[in-house]
Amino acid sequence: MVNSRYIQSLSPTEFKDTRSGFGAGLLLAGQANQDVVALCADLTGSLKMGAFKEAYPDRFFQVGIAEANMMSVAAGMTIGGKIPYTGTFANFSTGRVYDQIRQSIAYSEKNVKICASHAGLTLGEDGATHQILEDIGMMSMLPHMTVICTADFEQTRQATQAISKIQGPVYLRFGRPKVPVFMKADSPFEIGKAQVLTEGNDVTIVATGHLVWEALLASQALEARGTRAEVINVHTIKPLDGKTIVESARRTGCVVVAEEHQRTGGLGSMVAQLLAAQHPTPMAQVAVEDSFGESGTPAQLMEKYGLNAKCIEARVEEVMRFSATHLT
């Protein structure tokens, strides 16, 4: 059963990129709070930061192709009360600048919002050099860091606004391609609180980012075959809403975790840890299997690397079979 508090339609007519949700949210955050400032490393157009730049030229800082400097300048700007949003690709927002984030932002507990576009395989044709699949793991390992990965345009806009209101470092992950707009613009959004998008008692599908829509498609197909899936949108990966996930796993008895990330270190690893500690439950993952990506269209890559609704369905059937055979 679809939760109408969150979902506007399962037959969406609008397709938008989540990065545009970031651009829209940044402008709104800037309107609401004059301490919000933005820094960008030569990717203003790609990150959709143009509207903010135009509205607040004195609060926008072009850094050039120098991401390390951008992170530490942002950390410095918090001293004096600014709320800096940094914008570049996810690859250059994490791996390239890990030490700067670790020392100047996370360890120093600075109020920097690291906004990372073009995450994962759906960056597409640029290939593996730019397709980061390790960022959720790297950022989640850092103490003090909040990690958010959004599902569609509306949610990315909401999250971009919401992070200005919490104190402390945040990693906000979103992507490049146009994807269905299925979340309501006014759906309840609370950092750290997972969203149960469909209710069901047969299997729990925990998804984040672009895989949330795929999980909803999978749940529809499964329902046609008599399987009721509970789809949980984990937009906040850290702190993880363990209560909602464990409560669902108790009812369904099996879990599939879907994410556009390496299977090690991402949401799947964290849910496995959670379940092992609190309610051991058969679990399967939809994730990249310890490999780099490659060039291709987003849809081709998601198909080849097993990150779509079809793959979620297959994992659901496997884990339900396993559960039925081993736990009766």
Partner: peptide, 18 residues
């Protein structure tokens, strides 16, 4: 701000100055 891993403090000082 924390320092120790070298090379970051000039950027931080610039940010604070801005």
């Amino acid at each position: 701000i924390a320092s120790g891993s070298l090379g970051q403090g000039l950027s931080a000082a610039i940010g604070a100055a801005q």
